[in-house]
Amino acid sequence: MKKGAGLSEQLALMPNLSGQPPGLQYAPEFISPATEQELVRRVAALPLQPFQFGQYEGKRRVAWFGFQYDYTLRRLQDADPIPEWLSPIIGQVEAFGGPDIRIGQVLCTEYEEGVGIGWHRDKPHFDKVFGLSLGSACKFRFRRAAGVKWQRFTLDAQPRSLYMMTDASRQVWEHSIPAVAALRYSITFRTMVGRRS
């Protein structure tokens, strides 16, 4: 995707997904294969640590930048500054998100084969959420309560694609990723509540 491309041009790249949660947008082939390879190399070289959920340790490995949510203290903590090598892709993500989007937090994640993430919503400290898929595809599942049942939707997130969650897809629907079939990396970009977003 060209840096600085107009929002209408970018939206035209998105397929019309039947039944998708309001506020969910998806852009396939958001980056080139060469950019993907470089980002995978960069993320794999980070000092990734097992995800800490209070006293529990997740199987996926992560590196936080800008801010980190501490599940024991239940609040945000400062994290390492966002690396300069992420600046070009952050510029593309901000352009995709529209005017006044400012990324304040980045999470790099490694999912080994057989690793996923359970049902959740991102913490309320964060506003808009963008996710860039690298290395392999995944089933990005959504659900929300509908009476005594669940309304569900699955997005096939392909390598090099970007999703954006705003509005109901971010605030109402939960999301999860079942165990991946092959090594996958993701970079999650978030704007911050109460700040220019």
Rank of each mutant, 00 (worst) to 15 (best):
residue 142 F to Q: 03
residue 155 L to Y: 08
residue 156 D to I: 11
residue 109 T to Q: 00
residue 141 R to Q: 10
residue 109 T to D: 00
residue 114 G to K: 04
residue 151 Q to I: 02
residue 157 A to M: 14
residue 142 F to K: 06
residue 143 R to V: 10
residue 112 E to S: 12
residue 110 E to M: 15
residue 125 H to E: 10
residue 116 G to F: 12
residue 120 H to D: 14
residue 144 R to D: 02
residue 154 T to Y: 05
residue 159 P to M: 13
residue 117 I to K: 13
residue 146 A to R: 09
residue 114 G to A: 08
residue 141 R to A: 12
residue 111 Y to T: 02
residue 139 K to F: 08
residue 135 G to S: 07
residue 159 P to W: 15
residue 147 G to Y: 01
residue 135 G to Y: 12
residue 157 A to D: 06
residue 146 A to P: 04
residue 143 R to Y: 09
residue 159 P to R: 13
residue 154 T to F: 02
residue 119 W to Y: 05
residue 146 A to F: 02
residue 128 K to C: 12
residue 109 T to R: 00
residue 156 D to M: 11
residue 160 R to M: 14
residue 144 R to P: 00
residue 120 H to G: 06
residue 146 A to G: 01
residue 121 R to V: 11
residue 148 V to W: 09
residue 157 A to V: 12
residue 148 V to C: 04
residue 153 F to Y: 12
residue 135 G to K: 05
residue 135 G to V: 11
residue 151 Q to M: 05
residue 111 Y to I: 05
residue 111 Y to L: 00
residue 148 V to Y: 01
residue 143 R to G: 00
residue 125 H to P: 01
residue 139 K to N: 14
residue 127 D to T: 13
residue 111 Y to N: 03
residue 133 S to L: 07
residue 118 G to I: 09
residue 151 Q to N: 05
residue 126 F to N: 05
residue 157 A to T: 06
residue 143 R to I: 08
residue 132 L to G: 04
residue 152 R to S: 09
residue 139 K to H: 15
residue 127 D to Q: 15
residue 125 H to T: 07
residue 149 K to N: 13
residue 159 P to G: 11
residue 137 A to F: 09
residue 112 E to M: 08
residue 136 S to G: 07
residue 121 R to H: 04
residue 126 F to C: 02
residue 146 A to K: 11
residue 146 A to M: 00
residue 153 F to G: 08
residue 152 R to D: 07
residue 118 G to P: 06
residue 115 V to L: 04
residue 132 L to F: 04
residue 133 S to V: 10
residue 115 V to P: 09
residue 116 G to A: 11
residue 140 F to R: 03
residue 129 V to L: 03
residue 153 F to S: 02
residue 121 R to A: 07
residue 133 S to F: 12
residue 120 H to I: 12
residue 134 L to H: 01
residue 138 C to F: 05
residue 160 R to A: 11
residue 156 D to H: 11
residue 149 K to Y: 13
residue 147 G to K: 08
residue 147 G to D: 05
residue 138 C to G: 03
residue 146 A to E: 03
residue 145 A to R: 15
residue 132 L to E: 07
residue 144 R to V: 15
residue 127 D to G: 15
residue 119 W to V: 07
residue 139 K to W: 00
residue 136 S to A: 13
residue 153 F to Q: 10
residue 142 F to R: 03
residue 159 P to N: 07
residue 144 R to M: 13
residue 119 W to T: 06
residue 124 P to H: 08
residue 146 A to W: 00
residue 112 E to P: 03
residue 110 E to F: 15
residue 135 G to E: 09
residue 142 F to W: 04
residue 122 D to S: 07
residue 154 T to A: 02
residue 129 V to I: 15
residue 156 D to E: 09
residue 142 F to V: 02
residue 153 F to K: 00
residue 147 G to M: 06
residue 130 F to A: 01
residue 137 A to S: 06
residue 159 P to D: 10
residue 117 I to E: 03
residue 121 R to Q: 12
residue 156 D to R: 14
residue 122 D to I: 00
residue 136 S to K: 02
residue 128 K to Q: 13
residue 139 K to R: 15
residue 136 S to C: 09
residue 143 R to F: 12
residue 118 G to N: 02
residue 144 R to E: 05
